[in-house]
Amino acid sequence: MSDTTLIILLSTITTGLMLGLIFSLVAVGVTIIYGSIWMPNAANGQFFLLAALFAWSTSVSWGLQPALAALLVIGSSVPLSYALEILLVRRFYDVPNRNISYFVLTLGITQILSGIFSITYGVWSDQFQLPPLVPGVTMLGPFPIANNRLAAMLIAAVLLAILFALLRFHRYGRALRAVFQNRDAAALRGVNVRGIYRMSFVLGNAVIFAGGVLFACAYSFDLTIAWTMAITAFAIMIIGGPGSVLGALVIGIVFGLTQAVASIFASPTIAAFAYLGAMLIILLFRPSGLFAR
């Protein structure tokens, strides 16, 4: 194998993994929220972008350390989630068919945030870039990779592992899965259903924010990623199975690799067509997804 093909191969794999891990993170956040409170968070893309832009503001305009900025941004999602929960989300906990109300509600939030972004962060084609988290370059054989991206990948992988363990083994995770399966039975067994709802909303949004921050650390971005991310996260959630964290993980990585391959051999539009097509097929023929529990 010549050096050029090896470089192309390695760059495709690293890009694919990087994107895949971020897709997985966001999709896990979306699927936790949908699985528990039945809220299809269409605003996930805008939250993702909000985190990325906020990280840019804090690190570039205010001059904070990127690592510190990242923590600050992820932390800021908590009060935001609480405020949204109290103002809007809480009202629908007992409404039948609330998923469609939530869907429309979050589409409204999407509109508001995208309006605010286009006023404040201005022109659509502007590229935002953060200072690197870790400087320097590592050589993978002949292929150079920025330490910055490696760090972002590592953090994403660790976060996913922690989330997975939390949901599988911790008391909170068990309670969450109990509420997923049967809300009334969980309540009878002494689970505080509303508390679990609030927790999952906060946790899910924090995970989406983490995805946005890591993406901002690894890549330059513009305001159009919000919509792309929203559609991608939904596609991953539907294909993996709504509420399935494992599904979100696996399908997220698959999507990342697909995207990386497609952007070499075809155009990103083709990749988007492929996602949407896959999502339609799953919706029509296996609405519970590939990893249904």
Binding site: P40, N97, N99, I100, F103, I231, F234, A235, I238, T269, A272, F273, L276, G277, M279, L280, L283, L284, P287
Partner: peptide, 24 residues
Amino acid sequence: LPALRLRGFYFTLCSLVIQTVITL
């Protein structure tokens, strides 16, 4: 046609996907 199999949110999501495909 998806409306024959899907209801509520799932139909709406499906129609949103279709709308996105049309725009693309």
